[in-house]
Nucleic acid binder design. Structure first.
Lengths: 224, 224
DNA sequence: TCAATGCTTCGATGAAGGACGAACCATGCG
DNA sequence: CGCATGGTTCGTCCTTCATCGAAGCATTGA
């Protein structure tokens, strides 16, 4: 008999299909209302409400009340990382999907993971940044290299973080099975990509779709 | 309604307390038998067997059959990473540990782990045996040192093992979070402790309670 | 070949919890 | 106000699944 952090409690929260769908939907990074989440999960409103209160009690969600709307969002990057890790295992062992539809292909290329970019593009970007020693990766940790500040300043990103949250963090990519960049820097890069309109978010999935021009710009800046 | 990797299926596997305990026990990296895992999880053998087959079907475990023993281990680093991630969230979200009662205190000091001693005393013992080079520990493995045979013979323990089971094995201690000694040698030492009446087993827990005299003898022999 | 050990399967039981309809609060709007 | 809309709570039904004893299978040792 073991004691310690109650991992079964947390895992069982994710272990219900309705709740898992809700959490997956929230991986897009935007907070959603109870009705939207009920729709995503495919359950009635009372059922969704019950699930949401359980997720709240478990500390996996945050709640922002605005008027008569209640916006639920993931409690933080740590929770997002956990979902990503579980997704990775599920994808690896899962009953191989019938056939990857077009949306899935787009998801593999690039998608939003909470507040940063994930997918092949994101993994390639991190690889390149490490190869150029802008970032340094040892074991599981990622740190800024000596040239990082100037490098990112040149493209309009400030790597100084006032927040308590780490600037760099590795996040395991479920499609590529290798790490991509999370943390405030990862978030800032995604911001820039969307701000510059190099890519847009798909309306009803986590996919991030690059325009032909935007892809070139992204590759020039991050994959050169 | 979302589609994609079935994350609920994987999470619900971890979401049962018995299975979560088993997976946590396997995080030490060493494969364990069904009986050992049943003890760790605090369930009967049939129940454990049922859980194990579910974990196998879910792809979270690997199985190595050796004679009539079946060693279960984590399926890979990706699974271990997922457990880590869940543990991290659980620790961050639920710092409310149960208050340790008197029985728990005794359990922390010394308890039975399958067939050998665990707890602070056991961890201290292994540390001392390694410091004196009676045993050699490299990485995760423990081997007999050159003086081991004579050392243990002097206190009436034969380290020659006819069984296929390893003489020494590391077992991660949940209270101290460091390894203690398992294997046939660990079992033989526990046998001696109980045989010499240095300690007795608590009637309805795994705790092992040393008598004042017994504690002195134990420390003289193993912690000197 | 027989007995012991390790583990799995079967069958029955019981408890946990997910589902939804109806009723109930809260906010916003005319 | 009164009404519509977004959410939650309550009560009840019902499925799921964890649990264990007993029996069965497989391997090893004598």
């Amino acid at each position: 008999m073991r004691e310690g952090p109650d991992i079964a409690r947390i895992a069982s929260l994710v272990g219900d299909p309705a709740r898992a769908n809700m959490l997956t939907a929230l991986m897009g990074g935007t907070a959603l209302t109870a009705s939207e989440l009920a729709l995503e999960a495919g359950v009635s409103l009372p059922t969704a409400s019950s699930h949401l209160s359980k997720l709240m009690e478990g500390g996996l969600l945050t709640l922002a009340s605005q008027g008569r709307h209640r916006y639920y969002g993931l409690a933080g990057p740590q929770v997002a990382g956990m979902i990503e890790a579980i997704t990775g295992v599920a994808a690896a062992v899962g009953p191989q999907r019938v056939r990857p539809g077009p949306r899935d292909a787009a998801m593999r290329v690039a998608r939003v993971c909470y507040d940063h970019l994930a997918g092949e593009q994101a993994v390639a970007m991190l690889d390149r940044l490490v190869a150029r020693q802008v970032l340094l990766r040892d074991d599981k940790e990622i740190r800024l290299g000596p040239s990082a500040a100037s490098h990112f300043a040149a493209i309009g990103i400030d790597v100084e973080s006032k927040a308590r949250r780490p600037v760099c963090r590795a996040c395991l990519d479920w499609s590529v099975r290798r790490s991509h960049l999370a943390g405030t820097l990862g978030a800032a890069i995604l911001d820039k990509i969307l701000l510059e309109k190099w890519a847009r978010r798909d309306k009803d999935s986590r996919a991030v779709i690059f325009s032909p021009m935007g892809k070139q710009s992204f590759e020039r800046v991050f994959l050169a």
